[in-house]
């Protein structure tokens, strides 16, 4: 009885499904949602252009950044991802091929196997460093990272014990190598990975409001700098270390080069699956990505709207798009 009932229900619902399935399909792309707010905004800007101007239907997948994401893109599971920061990506030199061009200048030439396609720069230029609040820098007289050890007890927490504490790069997949850097530079601090950007920022905000000294890993553009007065600790200038790769079992170059140095200036880029963007039906999308050039100032304003005023990200992006057509009209292929 029951079985026959459910079978009849099944058959009829299948009929229903078939009946309602006549709707035409939009062009589809799958995008990975970045795991920091700035990246989310850049991605939403790109997605809204694709959806509203080029007639796409974009599926947004929440997927952690890291090598896994690169492999997913190479395998065609995800079509594109936005705003990758070269100094955080370790797969870029292996999987991408071709020049990274910003403002007509070649910034870097990738010589990988080409399993991931460099779609073009996103326009955002990133800077990363370790920061301390200005009040702490002034009262303790900290001018650079070399002074940190003298005051490490002021930066200590219950968990870090006698060492100072760095509110470190929060996500494992970002490849910041914070602890390694601290150890190489001889900074007697402990790197605490808190899991998410939000958790790290919450920790920093709480410490700032208590006027405690704290050392924070952060990047620009970020809304935090608009709300709180921070100064960088001037890590040594960036220098690449070729042996510091997975294949070489992370053999470091001592204090001479990465990761004992700071980060390079990051000309961020969007990247995608080569096969997807080689298809003629996606030619316009590919062209759009080569033309897209978002910029730091706009992102910074939107970051404040989203994170400080607690507004919906999609709404903020839509507002920007409606108010600044002159900024993005040139990105859209004819």
């Amino acid at each position: 009885m029951k079985i026959s009932k459910s079978i009849s229900a099944l058959v009829l619902s299948l009929v229903l499904v078939l009946g309602s399935f006549g709707t035409a399909h939009a062009k589809r792309l799958t995008a990975a949602v970045a795991d920091w707010t700035g990246g989310e905004i850049t991605c939403q800007v790109a997605v809204s252009m694709l959806e509203e101007e080029l007639g796409y239907k974009v599926k947004r997948v929440v997927f952690p950044s890291g090598t896994g994401l690169w492999e997913a893109i190479a395998a065609g599971e995800i079509d594109f991802a936005c705003e990758s920061w070269p100094s955080y990506a370790e797969a870029d030199t292996v999987m991408m091929k071709g020049p990274l061009i910003y403002d007509g200048q070649t910034m870097f030439n990738y010589e990988g196997d080409g399993s991931v396609k460099l779609l073009g720069t996103s326009g955002i230029i990133g800077l990363s460093d370790y920061y301390i609040p200005r009040y702490a820098a002034e009262s303790l007289g900290i001018k650079s990272w070399k002074d940190l050890n003298k005051h490490k007890d002021k930066f200590a927490t219950i968990e870090s014990g006698s060492k100072g504490r760095l509110i470190a790069c929060p996500v494992a997949g970002w490849n910041c190598h914070d602890q390694k850097r601290l150890d190489l530079l001889g900074i007697d601090f402990q790197a605490d990975e808190l899991g998410t950007e939000a958790a790290a920022i919450a920790e920093a905000v709480a410490a700032y409001e208590r006027k405690e000294p704290f050392l924070l890993y952060l990047w620009e553009p970020h809304w935090f700098f608009g709300a709180y007065d921070m100064v960088g600790v001037k890590l040594p200038a960036h220098k690449t270390c070729d042996s510091f790769t997975e294949a070489n079992n992370w053999k470091d170059c001592g204090t001479a080069a990465w990761p004992a140095t700071g980060w390079a200036k990051d000309y961020t880029f969007n990247y995608g699956n080569p096969d997807t963007f080689a298809k003629p039906e996606h030619a316009k999308a590919a062209e759009f990505f080569t033309k897209m050039k978002f910029d730091n100032a706009d992102q910074a304003v939107m970051l404040v709207e989203v994170k400080q005023k607690n507004r919906d990200l999609k709404e903020v992006v839509k507002e920007w798009k409606d108010n600044n057509p002159d900024k993005w009209k040139s990105w859209i292929p004819k």
């Binding site: 952690p64 950044s65 890291g66 090598t67 896994g68 690169w70 492999e71 370790e90 996500v171 494992a172 997949g173 970002w174 490849n175 990975e193 997975e246």
Partner: peptide, 10 residues
């Protein structure tokens, strides 16, 4: 954390 690290580096 090891699992996460492994995943992040695929």
């Amino acid at each position: 954390l090891e699992v996460f690290n492994g995943l992040a580096r695929s």
